[in-house]
Every structure is written in C-alpha cells, then in structure tokens.
Design a binder for these strands. Structure first.
Lengths: 263, 263
DNA sequence: TAGTGGTCTAGACCACTTC
DNA sequence: AAGTGGTCTAGACCACTAA
C-alpha cells in the first residue's frame, strides 16, 4: 500500500509531465484539494513538499504553488577557455560565454573577494603545497540577472600572483582578460586542464547563497590548471546550480597499446 | 525567525559535520527528542526529513535514523574506454573498471535487455535518423554487490548491429569484449566520443529502480560514439547515483588563433 | 483584509524490524 | 510484544503577498 500523499504526488507529477499543468501555471491550492477530499491539509502539504523535492514545483507563501520552468541547460564546453578570448582580446571568459549565448552582460553580475588564507587539504595538495600552507583565494559569485548561478573560487600559490592585479583587483572582475591573462602576463601561460565533476545536495548555506529552490542539487567542479612544464598555477572549485548547466567533453578513444603509457 | 524544525535540523547537521555523530551511528530516536522538549513528534519528524533530503541521514521503519556513509566517489576517466581492454582482451569495459578498483566482480551484477523500439527524438537525432525511426536499445542495470549504481542504455542503428551478438546476447553482458568489440568485429572501430553530463533529482521510478535514498540526486550522462569517418555508431544514456561517481577529463587549453577552426 | 503556504500540536493508528 | 519511523487528522496559529 502506497501512502495517500504519495499517490496524490504521483498523480500530479504525471499531469505535470503530461503538460496538463504547464510551467509557470499554478497547481490547485492546498485547501482546494482538502475540500476535494484528497486528505487533510498536512497530507496534501506532504504531497506538495514531495513535488518540490523532486524539482517539479516551487511553493511560496502568499502566492501559491507553481510548476517550475525548465530553463534550457547552458552547455559548457572547453571552448570557453579559448586562449584567443583572454590573451588577444579584453574579454573575461565568463563574459565571452555570455556574449556567445546572446545573454546581456550587466555590471554587478559578479562579485569578487580576494584574500590570503590557509588552504584546505584539497587546495594545498592540488597546488603541490604542504598542508596548512597559505594561498590566495579569489571567490566569485556569478549571477545572471539577479539570480545567482554559481560560485567559483580560484586558489593560487602566493609566489605566482603576488604583485599582480589578481591580488589587488580594482577594475572589475580580475581586470582585462581575467585571471588567466594575469597569469599569462606574469609569465605563466596555461596549457592543460583537468576537470573533475560530481553532484550532491547543497548545504543549507549554499542553498541560501545561491537561492536554490528545495530539491535542486548542485554540481561541484574541481579544475586544475597547469602550464606546459606541468606547474599547477590555479586550482578552482565551483558550485553550480544543477538545473542551469551541462558539461560537454570531446575526446579520442584512448589506446594504450598504441599510445604507450599515456593514461 | 527560523522555524523550530529548521533549527533542530541545523543543529544536528552541524553535529554530523563535526563528527559528533559518525557515519553509521544512529541519531536520537524521534520520541526521545520529543520528550527532550524539541517539539511534537511531527516537528522532530520534519527535521529528520530535512536531514534526509540533504543527504546526511537515512531513516527506516523499525530501525531508526543513521548517519549516511560517504563512500568515496569512484573516479571515471576516459581510460575506462581503452581500446586495449576490449579489442585485445576479453574484458568488458565495466568489468575492467571493477578490477582496476580492486572490487570483486560477481555474475548477475549486470542485467541486460535488448529490444527494438521507436527512438525518442533525443536518440534519433543523436544517431542521425529521422524522427520516429526504430533503433536497437540495449538497457543495462549495473549493481555493485546488491546495490544498483547506475543504468546505462545504448542505442544503435539497426543496420550496424543486426546479426551481431548485440541483438542476441547469450553469453553474459554483450559477450566477450562488450558492445564496442562487437561493433569492431562488424567493421566499425570507434574513434571519438562526446560526453555530456548534468545532474537532476530522480523521478519516482528511478529512485525506486536504483533504490536511492531520499535526497540523492542522479547524474545523467549522454555519450555519443563515432568512428574515424564520423559515423555515429552508439548513443548511450546513463543515469547514475550521484553519491557514487565523479567524472574526470583532461584536455589541452584550446587556442582558436593557432588551431584554426577546431572547436 | 483576505487568501496563500508553512508551522506546530496531540493523538491515533500503521508498517516494519527485532527479539 | 515492544519499539522504531511514517501516515493521517483536525484544528490553531504564523508569515507572507496581493488588492
């Protein structure tokens, strides 16, 4: 026997997926369904909480419960790191990205704070430093319009960035060309990257910071960037609202019998 | 003013993150906290549901509520597709993966059903077929021990696989060497792949099939595989329990000014 | 002010597990 | 049988939004 609220939730979920309730459209009010005999207020409420946790609707006091819009996922490919963008032009990677997707750029869509902190184990080991070493942390909160979409925090070895614009970033987001340009000007041209990604539920703080609706996971991205000689010059951690992004990677099928020991 | 159950949940979450409640250890019983004055049974229950939705604990009737184990994420890199594994040896990709990570392989850890179906738009467009065309679908449910970890469904153009072992798979998972080997033997050597990944909450059916605890997201993987001449020979969709996997990609920073038009 | 969802209570009862 | 979490009710009250 499946519970009363689960049955109601499944029925409504089916109707949402069918298109009987369109995105943006309100679901029946809780009290309406109570009068319709779907159960007590708490029971119907439980069904609505479940739909919220499944990412199908959002409820808000005073308003009601509406079907969530499914914004198309923004595709993130490695082309967003194109050297031509930040080396030859003035663009910052994320702005170039914005331009490419036809969305407007507004000042204030990215906040940034730079600080010198003791690195966590994750950070120091990625940068090849001993535990407890100090690093520079450049933390950004990126928004689209007034909706936050993700955080991105870059960590640098102090000797790589001391005296550069990264440490004292007056003119906007890390200045002309962004962080990779600054490293480039300091003699560190980035050459290879490794991205590691996984998903989880947000902490309560992250849900607050990114104003995530209940039932929205986050994708955590760990990016390690190094120069041609293998020096790691940046390690970055991103926390992305899962409903906004997808990641795309193209690669050759490896063949260790032919490539030798490359993997 | 933050609600009573939220305060309780936050307090418990903090204690879990602190390590005051270790993985596998039980939280206080609901009725205990009721007697301790944390509120009514429903109130405490709400706090526990929240912790469950945040992926921190699992509750079960008859037992109690215990802190979830955080199994280390299995790292999936492109080396798992190494041609040497399936072309020269007898291994199936996922088994080789298992061996590499030191986990035992048992028969029955993968179920498989093959059928000829009308492809969804996603599938047909990936395979370069007209809408509504028929394709072969090879659906696997992969387990580790008795816990399902992910589903993976491969779609093929009928003319590529008709008459091969894929269509009539008697000896285990697609036979010696797996699907790529069968394609190889049929004259289609895979050469390039594109993977696209994103996260979302599972549907109720997926949560059931993968026996996901409440508050566990899934990662959906779309894999397009083609031969050297660009023919798409496989399109696969995977649904992975998010707490079990991470994906890793290495790549060269692109430079359109030097590479010409490659992205 | 009227209407929305959200919180909270007290208590009955159910489903499941362990002993 | 005893103890666990889960469901459900009826109703009071709160927080927020809109007209």
């Amino acid at each position: 026997m499946t519970s009363k609220w689960r049955e109601l939730a499944d029925r409504l979920a089916k109707q949402i997926r069918n298109g009987e309730y369109q995105p943006g459209q309100p679901l029946p009010h809780i009290r309406t369904l109570v009068e319709a005999g779907e159960g007590s207020k708490s029971t119907v409420h439980m069904a609505y909480k479940a739909l919220e946790a499944e990412g199908l609707v959002t409820s808000s006091r005073g308003h009601g419960t509406v079907v969530r819009h499914r914004t198309p996922l923004k595709r993130l490919g490695i082309a967003r790191y194109d050297k031509a963008k930040w080396r030859d032009g003035d663009e910052v990677a994320f702005i170039a990205d914005r331009v490419a997707s036809g969305r407007p750029y507004h000042r204030g869509e990215q906040t940034q704070t730079v600080s010198r902190v003791e690195g966590s184990h994750l950070v120091t080991s990625a940068l090849g430093l001993p535990d407890g070493a100090e690093v520079y942390a450049r933390a950004r909160l990126v928004k689209e319009g007034d909706q936050p979409t993700h955080t991105l925090t870059s960590y640098y070895r102090p000797e790589h960035v001391e005296g550069t614009r990264i440490v004292d970033p007056s003119p906007g987001p890390a200045g002309r060309g962004g962080g990779f340009r600054v490293l480039f000007d300091a003699g560190y041209e980035i050459d290879r990257m490794r991205e590691r990604i996984f998903a989880r539920m947000p902490t309560a703080e992250e849900a607050d910071l990114l104003s995530l609706p209940a039932g929205e996971p986050v994708v955590e991205l760990h990016r390690t960037t190094c120069t041609a000689d293998g020096t790691v010059v940046e390690f970055a951690v991103g926390v992305h609202a899962a409903s906004r992004f997808s990641w795309e990677y193209d690669f050759q099928v490896p063949d260790s019998a032919r490539d030798g020991e490359r993997a």
